[in-house]
Design a protein around this nucleic acid. Sequence first.
DNA 1: TATGAATGAGATTTCATTCAT
DNA 2: TATGAATGAAATCTCATTCAT
Lengths: 225, 225, 225, 225
Amino acid sequence: MSDETTRMRARAAGIADPDVQLRRLTIGPRRRTEEVLAAAAAVFAERGFHGASTQDIADRLGMRQASLYYYFASKEAALEQVCQRGIERIIGDTEVIAAGPGSVAERLAMVMRRHVEPLADNCASVRAYLHEVRFLPKEARRRIGRLARRYERVVEGLLEQGIASGEVRADLDIEIARDAILGMCNHAAHWPGKEPGGAMAHVAEELIRLVLRGIATERPDVVAG
Amino acid sequence: MSDETTRMRARAAGIADPDVQLRRLTIGPRRRTEEVLAAAAAVFAERGFHGASTQDIADRLGMRQASLYYYFASKEAALEQVCQRGIERIIGDTEVIAAGPGSVAERLAMVMRRHVEPLADNCASVRAYLHEVRFLPKEARRRIGRLARRYERVVEGLLEQGIASGEVRADLDIEIARDAILGMCNHAAHWPGKEPGGAMAHVAEELIRLVLRGIATERPDVVAG
Amino acid sequence: MSDETTRMRARAAGIADPDVQLRRLTIGPRRRTEEVLAAAAAVFAERGFHGASTQDIADRLGMRQASLYYYFASKEAALEQVCQRGIERIIGDTEVIAAGPGSVAERLAMVMRRHVEPLADNCASVRAYLHEVRFLPKEARRRIGRLARRYERVVEGLLEQGIASGEVRADLDIEIARDAILGMCNHAAHWPGKEPGGAMAHVAEELIRLVLRGIATERPDVVAG
Amino acid sequence: MSDETTRMRARAAGIADPDVQLRRLTIGPRRRTEEVLAAAAAVFAERGFHGASTQDIADRLGMRQASLYYYFASKEAALEQVCQRGIERIIGDTEVIAAGPGSVAERLAMVMRRHVEPLADNCASVRAYLHEVRFLPKEARRRIGRLARRYERVVEGLLEQGIASGEVRADLDIEIARDAILGMCNHAAHWPGKEPGGAMAHVAEELIRLVLRGIATERPDVVAG
DNA sequence: TATGAATGAGATTTCATTCAT
DNA sequence: TATGAATGAAATCTCATTCAT
């Protein structure tokens, strides 16, 4: 009875199950953990943390609910790991980029591209991070918050550099500008209809142009793009 | 026993109960419905739709949980009504403003102010609308979507007018700009720490300046603020 | 809000409401009570006692749930009154018929006709009585049982007379025969597809023939029909 | 506290709990599912589908109410499985009997005996089937209906054969006769007071005699019993 | 590495009923 | 005669989690 139920669920979730058994034998243990977290991320992103059940996650994996607990200690722990992957994905190599060569405008543009990219790819952990961090217990939220802060520093740093170099107008409120930029980029997560690839790239470039003009000093020749 | 339980809950939720009996007699029936929806909005905004229980709502009202169902048919129906109030609050009189006098920049600035205001006031229905609409069943989502579309039209219309009049640069992708603007404004909902009043007003003005510069043609004298 | 709800319900239940107000003023008080019990009977018959809600009854009347309690003291009390009407409808004038003229076969045939008739008419109180008496509290069940017993006596009496007169074979177990006859007749309630009128009358005659032959002595000429 | 509650309930329901733990280890998994359905059948038969609560079922099993949902997906699903067992119990080997040797009268008598037997044994699933199928959702009712149809065909088939062979009078309306026979047999379910064994067997034989005489041609020597 | 069986807590929702008006 | 507002109790069902295997 339970057996049939599981298979039905797996099928309903659009998961092929024939080779699951096989895969289990052929790939390493870490990989499976990653799969589980990816499934959790997908479900959290789609239904929200509280709207998602561990059963949903298990279904997506062709696994029983109870088995999940081999991979994470609790649903909340799973969310924390998902969020960590999400924010890490956003941070990516932006710190390296920001510290690298190029004008502030160029570097900020690259950072923004990196931010919108995973959303364009519909990256579940990033989406889950954006909407669901707030449901993490305080302690975990603080841990994730420390990572998020690093990313905020990247953008702030660029804006500060821009002001110092004259590329960015001096009257800009850096914190607000930073939040505005992040808000605009994050908002890209709300366009579920946009397919990845060309369209989203266009969106990113348009956003970048908007921002660069918005923050630039009155020397249009400075503006990239 | 149940009675004590309720009182405990009400107290735990920080609600004074002594005059509840009185209030029931003194205020009209419509009002009570509004109170219930306000409580629902607050709870949905704070904990998310799925994270909020109807018990939480009842507690906030000093009411028994079953009694809520006198006012709404289901939790989802409550969410729809909350969301409707949220989007209506955002729309507000923006259509009138947009159709009114003044330059595009001035009118867009006013519209943005109106958008950020309720978030600054921590308006629960608006916050609930922004984060929780997506959990409405399809049919309801469509109904709310129709309202949201009206607001989007307001912003689009202004941008179009701006392009026509030369105030806004012609190469702007209107849809993207519209989403960017809304995204930035909505993002204000993510600053729960900001107290209302001066600070948020400052934020709004800064955002407005950013946007106006971002979309303006290269004639700085046109830009407001 | 509640008002709209009620109208929606009334409409959904296929009840015209425009003249309800009028009717209330024009017809006597007893009548209204009968209407309420008829509605209760219909709902009990259709959904079973426990499956029927007082709301269902109110809907059918275009009335609010609370108003029902003006007409009956409790749902169980309503069921008792419905059942009483049901069994009384079955008893009808069968006692008179049984005491009247004609052969046993003729009189039994008439009694059976009277039994099947209300089922053919889809008489709600009779259907409700047959299926739902068992959910009455003991005391009420006993009261109704006394009435039912009267009807059983009618059939038993006819069978006894038949044996005495030689019309019915002497080896017949009267109690069993009585139950068999009632069982067959009651079973007519299970044919919801049969429209009233000719078809059901045909069914009744066929049942009568079956029974009369079944109980008759080996003198086929005695058998009616 | 909950623990005591359960024990109290189990005791109140007349269930011994000491060896429950033991039983769990000693009997196979399929068995447990059967036990659960048997308990459901008993409760449905006794109180009606809507009058029975899942708590009642759990009590009878010494199980927590939530645990039932491991064995069935919903109360309605449980009813469907119960009804299936009920109608299957009635069908039993009647198709084999009907296709076997012997006169139509002999075979019909055996079929009727098989029908009344489970009712005499107070078989819960059969009683539940008879009274509660109507509360199944349409789709399920159709599924069960297909099985019921098979049984009806058995009786119809015998009557047709009887007419063909001259054992049964040709003017008999087969559908009505079939329903009358089933109705009479089913009605045996309404005698809850009758203890199994001799008494019910006597009832069955009496019913059979009634029916056979009722349907027979005017050649009394043909009639069995 | 994964599962079957079960559970405690709690969720939403329904229901019969009450009572002041 | 009927209703609006509310309630206590209970119903069905879901969920995260545990634990022996």
